[in-house]
Design a protein around this nucleic acid. Structure first.
Lengths: 226, 226
DNA sequence: TTCTTCGTGTCACACTCGTGTCACATCGGT
DNA sequence: ACCGATGTGACACGAGTGTGACACGAAGAA
């Protein structure tokens, strides 16, 4: 398994130094794609799925920010900015655009490489850290945070586990019995109707996304994209 | 405050030029230690704590790589290699050994000096990277000091490690089990409720920032920005 | 040693808040 | 219109948590 990295830098020597470093260091870990001007970079961003991008900010054709934006509208791969010494406000702008880290020229390849590995690790962790989502609802099983349209909502324990079950089986009809067995587990000496109540409270807390939980009369409940 | 730099170079004139430059340029910023052969250098590395090292690779006695390795086994101060023209593969070897940057002979003292400052700045920033913070709470993992609104607060060992865990996972809900496994580690034959007590004592000691530790009923605790 | 102090785990009690249940309203299909 | 199924409001119980007190052991001082 190899990671696809895009390196954009107009200084030819530096570009070569970087791509050589990545090619040799990982011994096959990296698949390196390079670009030396903005236009070329934008084309390559559009035509590929990268695991990591290293972008110089000052470029002929388009700035690193433009490339960053293009990449962000497509996915959320980690991005490292390369910038000249002492441009703190530019770095700030970079973070606003959505970059994940930056290095200041002159920088050491080793440091850049270390940052790359760190970001990849973090991205990987986020990926399989069980991000569940459906329509405007998103739930992170690691942080246990629930969001509706990127606004954080707070729900109780039972509602939380119910929502996890719904999300893991979105679009499927879940019977009350199935929900009871999964969410209530041992406490099975309860009425079927507790599910109704839990669903109600969950709907209340989900606010505008309440409609995504559909009632299927005679069978149970179902979470839909809308 | 001054930085301690080790300059290793066998060419006497160059060694003097460099050390003079550092002594004069910084006007007291630098404390310069020199060595002109490998053995001397190794001894000085062993007996001092440097903030920066500038190592020639070709040396009588021991190579710059050996000195680099010795330094790395001791700490992680920034290292710049000085090398002869056209030895790119040697430079790669340098990066493997763990150097942070390099200059190629003939080089300008000014350029070397700029790299030195850059590395120092970066090293300093890395030190700060064991600075954890969230809202009005900040914690330094190196000095183990905890501050609330820049006012120093004293907390006990258990509370400290608990706070570190909370800070490293801020905004995430941490279950009692997870907290126990991380903070109590081996002593797992304790009640879940010790976490509650630890949280209480931590809240007491955090004073005005106590509210940043939120209780998530049925699931655990969570540190928020406010 | 003996006394003191401090950190920490445990228990008891108070209280909040989540949750199950019921009653009634409403809905939906036949 | 009928009846079963589901939505909704209210309420009471109890699980989960905050808090004070105490016990035990480690570390340090006399």
């Amino acid at each position: 398994m190899s990671y696809k990295v895009l390196i954009v830098e107009d200084l030819q020597e530096l570009l070569e130094a970087m791509s050589d470093f990545y090619r040799e260091k990982g011994a096959g870990l990296w698949e390196v794609v390079t670009a030396s001007d903005g236009k070329d970079a934008l084309a390559k961003v559009a035509g590929n799925d990268f695991d990591l991008m290293i972008l110089d900010i000052m470029l002929p054709g388009a700035s690193g920010f433009d490339i960053c934006k293009a990449a962000r509208s497509k996915g959320d791969c980690p991005i490292i900015f390369v910038t000249a010494l002492g441009s703190e406000n530019i770095i700030l702008k970079g973070y606003e655009t959505g970059c994940d880290d930056y290095v200041v020229k002159p920088f050491s390849l080793k440091q850049l490489y270390a940052k790359s590995l760190g970001l990849l690790k973090r991205a990987k962790k986020n990926q399989d850290s069980d991000l569940l989502s459906c329509g405007s609802i998103s739930l992170n099983k690691r942080t246990m945070l629930v969001k509706v349209n990127d606004r954080e909502v707070s729900i109780n324990a039972k509602e939380y586990f119910l929502l996890v079950y719904l999300l893991e089986n979105k679009n499927s009809v879940l019977t009350r019995r199935a929900i009871l067995e999964r969410v209530w587990k041992d406490d099975l000496d309860v009425t079927d109707r507790v599910v109704d109540t839990a669903i109600r409270r969950l709907r209340d807390n989900l606010g505008e996304a309440a409609g995504q939980i559909k009632t299927v009369i005679g069978r149970g409940y179902r979470l839909t994209e809308e």
